[in-house]
Design a protein around this nucleic acid. Sequence first.
DNA 1: TATGAATGAGCATTCATTCAT
DNA 2: CATGAATGAATGCTCATTCAT
Lengths: 206, 206, 206, 206
Amino acid sequence: MPKVSAGHRAARRQQILDAAARCFARDGFHNTSVHDIVRESGISAGLVYRYFAGKEDMIVAIVTEWHERRRAVVESSTADFADLVSGYLGLLRSIGDPDARDGLRLGVQVWAEAVRSPRISELTRSGIDVPRSGAAKRVKNAQRNGELPSDLDPDSLVRIFVAVYQGLALQTVLDDDLDHAAFVRTLELLLDKVARPAASGPPAAG
Amino acid sequence: MPKVSAGHRAARRQQILDAAARCFARDGFHNTSVHDIVRESGISAGLVYRYFAGKEDMIVAIVTEWHERRRAVVESSTADFADLVSGYLGLLRSIGDPDARDGLRLGVQVWAEAVRSPRISELTRSGIDVPRSGAAKRVKNAQRNGELPSDLDPDSLVRIFVAVYQGLALQTVLDDDLDHAAFVRTLELLLDKVARPAASGPPAAG
Amino acid sequence: MPKVSAGHRAARRQQILDAAARCFARDGFHNTSVHDIVRESGISAGLVYRYFAGKEDMIVAIVTEWHERRRAVVESSTADFADLVSGYLGLLRSIGDPDARDGLRLGVQVWAEAVRSPRISELTRSGIDVPRSGAAKRVKNAQRNGELPSDLDPDSLVRIFVAVYQGLALQTVLDDDLDHAAFVRTLELLLDKVARPAASGPPAAG
Amino acid sequence: MPKVSAGHRAARRQQILDAAARCFARDGFHNTSVHDIVRESGISAGLVYRYFAGKEDMIVAIVTEWHERRRAVVESSTADFADLVSGYLGLLRSIGDPDARDGLRLGVQVWAEAVRSPRISELTRSGIDVPRSGAAKRVKNAQRNGELPSDLDPDSLVRIFVAVYQGLALQTVLDDDLDHAAFVRTLELLLDKVARPAASGPPAAG
DNA sequence: TATGAATGAGCATTCATTCAT
DNA sequence: CATGAATGAATGCTCATTCAT
């Protein structure tokens, strides 16, 4: 039987992760010492190591948490293509939310770690694979329904959308001059030009 | 008057930068010690510091070099919109070149550094600003010529292209499953649907 | 609440300071590496830095400790001029004590540091200012009492005594041939010639 | 036959020593790198090492030069006690000269080095021994002449004068509040009280 | 003779991690 | 369970000194 309740453990764990996320987003992964996290979280060094084997484990936990939250959102949505698009646009819009900034900064750190750590690389990939293949399936449906031109490779199309998301996240973090609303609006116009005509009449290739 | 020729100095400098780039791409910026660069370059620690004040200066030098090379390419191209697009597609294709892999990995490291270092952030931005505003100008021309729909915000459109580039680079680094050729081909098809109709005849929606 | 007692902390701190003082006195401030202090004290490098931010802080701590000890002595003495003189002579005699040798050697190092470090210069001055102005007050009293000729500038007179102290300390450290007892005895005779006549009868020049 | 004239060699040598003295006085002996001296002197590192084996040799050369200059002064003076005193007072006064400041600062550095370097210690002592024993001889003469009380130990008396000189030098360097003129005037008054009565009439002890 | 490029040992300092309390 | 004192290897960097030119 555990000495402290599972709830207490979970709260402690979250307390550490929140502090770590704050530090990583603020100072970067490698410029955050474990001591910084100790200070930020108010939890002693020894205890931190009873929850996590080291800094990398914290990154892994944070990213895993993201994936779980995202998976819940993805699974709750319908298979409808219009829903996919509106969900995607909602995602893009959420990038502009100032509250999301820390998460974006942290995300860039995760990318950098994924480049050199197979473990984080694998984790990152595994979190994207499921929603991406789910989206690809819906793209195929949309092509069958004539909502989308059928000459487009579904997997690549989804990857392009993912790329736009990633690039927007990056530019948001690195460039204060970015006009986020205009970016999303312009992307919406582009989507209309590609998807709408096919949905309301004969395919463009006809 | 220097004791060694300017060429020798430049070669030494490049020798250090190449070794540093290799190390940074392989192990990440922060997991590369100066000693690693010393070993990789075959140049003594003391001498390394006669060329660079520290590791950050090496990153700065590498990125600056990228910018200079890119600027040369950009300035040599015409103002034609079709050229812009084909140049862009060429850039995307170059991402698939195995020789470019190290550069991409390094690029992700630079993004992560830019998040927390104003100096690198500024450097990164300044290298992108010029080609981006140049591209925006050509987009405006294309809109005047009817090659592109005029309801699209030029700056945002360019940012979207940049985002796709950045996202493709990231996915190339993080995901071996990526079908690079299909990605570019699909993007090309998308561009055709947006740009060609306006250039060669009445808009599809007309 | 600290994990170790305040006493333990103080003892550790003193352990480091004693080792540092030994090293500084033996090898000089700049020829003592932190590693030397680590070896001499038996305390790990990391822990040393939990007590002191660097070598300079150790010098500062050592000198501060001196000042505190001296201040305690000064404050406990009476305002009597004879006491001042006998206290001064006691100080001079203590210079001859072999146990004081390390402190003298260290003191010369401190002078050298004070020349180029405003922080140590300020510290050194602040430790001397109080006893010196205290002594000057007593000199003025002695002049009012006729114990000392009134044409002597009190502040300068005190500075001369301080200078003799400093010079004796220096010669003790640098010159083994010094006959310390003779030095103090001779100084005492000189003091008699200046001070006693005024105290016990009409001035010699009268 | 030498490749460059002896004069040229001597000038080079002096150029290095002057630069070194400036650096040592400004930054302290140990915070001056050989490269600093190279920069300050305008002479290349390699050449510096053809004139001096290292920094310590420069200190030795500078101090030796001082001693030679002082010896010339001492040897040119008469054996008269009044001359000795006035020469001594002149020396004290020269301490107040702003142009002498660098020399004083350097002198303190030399003391600190002498503490830990037998070579510099020996050098320092040897430079003082001769003038000190010369002065002691003249003190003995003065005692025979009745100019000075005969109960004073000549060697100690000279050492006291040296101590005052050293202490004044130190205080001049470390304490801007020092009133140099008052110091010397007060010392002069003290000397009068000790020496004059004996010179113009019967000894005080009579 | 004169240069300054080049070396590499040595420095102060930090940090992830452990463990006695 | 919880603490934070303690460790010591590793880091970025400097510097006296050498030597090819």
